[in-house]
Design a protein around this nucleic acid. Sequence first.
DNA 1: TTAGCATATCAATCTACGTTGATGTGTCAA
DNA 2: TTGACACATCAACGTAGATTGATATGCTAA
Lengths: 128, 128
Amino acid sequence: MLNRMEALARRAEQLRALADPLRLRIVGLLAAHGETCVCEILAETGTTQGNISTHLRVLRSAGLIRSQKIGKWVFYALERQALDELTGWLGGHLAGCAEGCASSLYACCAKGEVPLSWDAAHAREEVA
Amino acid sequence: MLNRMEALARRAEQLRALADPLRLRIVGLLAAHGETCVCEILAETGTTQGNISTHLRVLRSAGLIRSQKIGKWVFYALERQALDELTGWLGGHLAGCAEGCASSLYACCAKGEVPLSWDAAHAREEVA
DNA sequence: TTAGCATATCAATCTACGTTGATGTGTCAA
DNA sequence: TTGACACATCAACGTAGATTGATATGCTAA
């Protein structure tokens, strides 16, 4: 089992793999077409062959797509499970607690001299 | 309205803002705490103050968080709507068509000499 | 008004990434 | 067996990002 920082690093790596316009186009094509030949991706994107290969490797080493060689062609497809896991995790990570958050108190970092919260700070401002 | 490439670039920028372990920790804190003082983020993450400020700026210029100055403190919070939009868009982008994809035909790039699909290539392999 | 605190910004450094062009590898057809 | 094709890999270049330490700004309290 991964510790917390390693898990975050892994998720960051996966998100980073998606965080590129060309790679977003690629996964969009794979989503729309299913198993897709590299040559087709190449034709649709209009960049160099080496560049496409590099981007496909980034996505693959993040575990987001898989490849299958058939004859002299290579077909790529989404790893649906990994992508679902990622989007699900992200949703959970961003969801936080449903309620009671905005009203809870958080001590500020100043050495105990001024316990502070958003509400308390607001109150100060409203008085002033 | 943005054209397709600009829209992808914008989404890539937002995903990129999330694609860092420290920034994932930050948005996790904001999700759990609601409005949160920078000093608290600083205390929880244990990195330098300048570094936190930089990462917060990245998240903010991607439109994923907002800031509010109260007295000498600055409180950050998630931009729930932008994040929901992003995760929703990503889900749609990755969903593709529900069915009929894996079985459709796609011409390969070779100049018309070998129309090819995953199925056709598979058939070739099985015969061989 | 002065001193201290919270935060932002800047300069500098190191590393990682995106792109291109060239080359290597495996596969097929003639 | 030779040539052509599909794809991967590599070297090189320019650019962007992460981190740190120093400095600037704005607020507050004494």
